[in-house]
Design a protein around this nucleic acid. Structure first.
Lengths: 334, 334
DNA sequence: CTGTTAGCGCTTTCAT
DNA sequence: ATGAAAGCGCTAACAG
């Protein structure tokens, strides 16, 4: 049960493998007669070219990789889906990897993928393998999505989280809030640093007192959202508004609020990065920062494809503009 | 900027490529001195073996594929995630593809993946390329998940949708329901046939009148759930209960019910295949058929891995047992 | 227009 | 224990 090779086809058709190769690759310089004959034999033998061999010659695998912390996170999967669609049209195949935000796993993946000679990488990185990524980017296109590169100059398509958070703070202060909390993911993730900076700038510019109890770094999870709100509610000076770093956290906050009979938005205002799933069925509707996920995916695909075709493209940094989508979870403070 | 090859290493270390290869592959029969030397050169040159070349020799790519209709569907992505985790530990990489349930796209993917010589395939198939899949399965392991193979004998890990639907009907008739609707995905998808059969058997065995208006085939989508309920509500004899083929459909039904002031479960009972996202935040909590998604993923991974190691494994059909998880969306009819 | 040949980077007999 | 050489399946000069 061994695979049919080009040689088999060549022999049966009474031609050389070069001719078969020409037929396969639609080279024009081959006799119509022969071509037909070869085609027929290919049919008969159900011959399928071995892309491995092709790739070895061309050093192109027509494969790209998408690495994120967790491919089951709707945020990442939506980006990945866009990338998949775009590259599929260009005959690429996409391999995915989840790192659980562990730098070791990320590095392992990167090495493996490089050894497998993927043609390009789209990554939302832990940020701890940036030097390696930079090296990689000398060989193949590397596109950072969502999480911007820190030290190194790498292609990126990211939301300006700093600005978005800053605007969220403004949005809340305009509505008379002074006690504003920020609940977000791990401190070491660059986007959380950006949120932090945007937050503190907003606090400063609005002449609000900075209260470190209101800033919570943890995980982008439902559980962390729940626990954080519990902690915030235990403070003497409870916040009147919370900015949630992602929709999982927002969901946790919504749940605890409901359990504790805290009315949102009357007792507590909430703004989230991104909307939650099944939001149509959940009250209140969230006031959220629209991160334009599909746009991230599209821009990233375009950047990737142009880099794939064009070895010498310049490095680009694309910033996606966010927009606050008004729901009913943030109100004017009485 | 060409890649360092084994030859470079060999030359710099003053040995043959054979020796380098032996060092890389931890062959024992190599002089410790030489080994050290080679290792050092590998470090210095930052040499990375080209897996493409390796694969060409070994005809193993250490890559498996996961094909489903839509990788952004939480149901499939959860299975895929499990598979990813399992195979990663065995040094496999996973490529994914979404077919949108279009047989052409599916076939295109299958051909491409075969040409790329993936080592195995996990697929939730449209069902229309089964002969091709059967052929494929002679070369590499093929595992069908969720959607069982129809004509051909292929490995499978599936939920018994027929039985699950039958039990859902029983569950409802026990609660005095006689007018039970079934709203599910496309007719041509085998799982919907199974649901249909389970439904009709349940209707028959419970001596309930079969009403074809109560059976709706369409898409596994929110929209279809909404539209279906609207249609059902327009009937003279409105159903008192609905079985939703998946959670997207259930969500659509919940929304329309809410908009139309239909109380679930008082005015209408609802049972769904699978729970909806953020269910903790949604009232009523669903009574749903737990499809044991993680178990599907685990069993599929195990089956795949054992087939990967063991070329001559027998074909297996694994049935996952479902369980009705009681929430508050299905009540006794007054 | 077609075939011969070398070679992509690696592994693996087979000698030595 | 090590190296020479063949070959995995394909492509691309280069001849003819």
């Amino acid at each position: 049960m061994t695979n049919t090779t080009m040689k088999d086809v060549a022999e049966k058709a009474g031609v050389s493998t070069a001719t078969v190769s020409r037929v396969i690759n639609r080279a024009d310089n081959v006799n119509p007669e022969l071509r037909k004959k070869v085609m027929r034999v290919i049919e008969e033998l159900d011959y399928k070219p071995n892309q491995l061999a092709r790739s070895l010659k061309s050093s192109e695998t027509n494969t790209i990789a998408f690495i994120s912390s967790d491919m089951s996170n709707p945020f990442f999967i939506r980006i990945a889906k866009k990338v998949e669609e775009a590259v599929r049209k260009n005959n690429y195949t996409i391999v995915i990897g989840s790192t659980e935000d562990k730098p070791e796993i990320e590095l392992e993946y990167l090495k493996l993928l490089y050894e497998k000679r993927v043609d390009g990488i789209v990554i939302s990185s832990t940020g701890e393998n940036e030097d390696y990524l930079k090296d990689l980017s000398k060989k193949i296109p590397v596109i950072c999505v969502d999480r911007r590169p820190q030290k190194n100059n790498l292609n990126s398509v990211c939301v300006d989280k700093e600005k978005a958070t800053y605007e969220a703070v403004n949005f809340l202060t305009e509505r008379k809030h002074q006690k504003i909390a920020l609940v977000t993911g791990a401190k070491k993730i660059i986007t959380n640093y950006d949120r932090y900076v945007g937050y503190t700038k907003g606090i400063y510019d609005n002449n609000v007192a900075l209260n470190s109890d209101y800033i919570k770094f943890g995980q982008f999870s439902f559980e962390f959202g729940k626990n954080s709100l519990l902690e915030l509610l235990a403070l003497k000076e409870k916040p009147t508004a919370v900015i949630a770093g992602n929709s999982f956290i927002a969901a946790g906050i919504l749940l605890v609020a409901r359990e504790k009979n805290i009315n949102i938005p009357d007792d507590l205002s909430l703004i989230s990065f991104g909307n939650i799933s099944n939001s149509q069925l959940i009250t209140p509707s969230l006031t959220y920062i629209d991160e334009k996920v599909d746009e991230i995916g599209e821009k990233a695909s375009n950047l990737l494809l142009s880099n794939l075709n064009n070895k010498k493209s310049e490095i680009k940094h694309i910033k996606i503009k966010t927009k606050i989508n008004k729901g009913n979870s943030a109100a004017v403070l009485e």
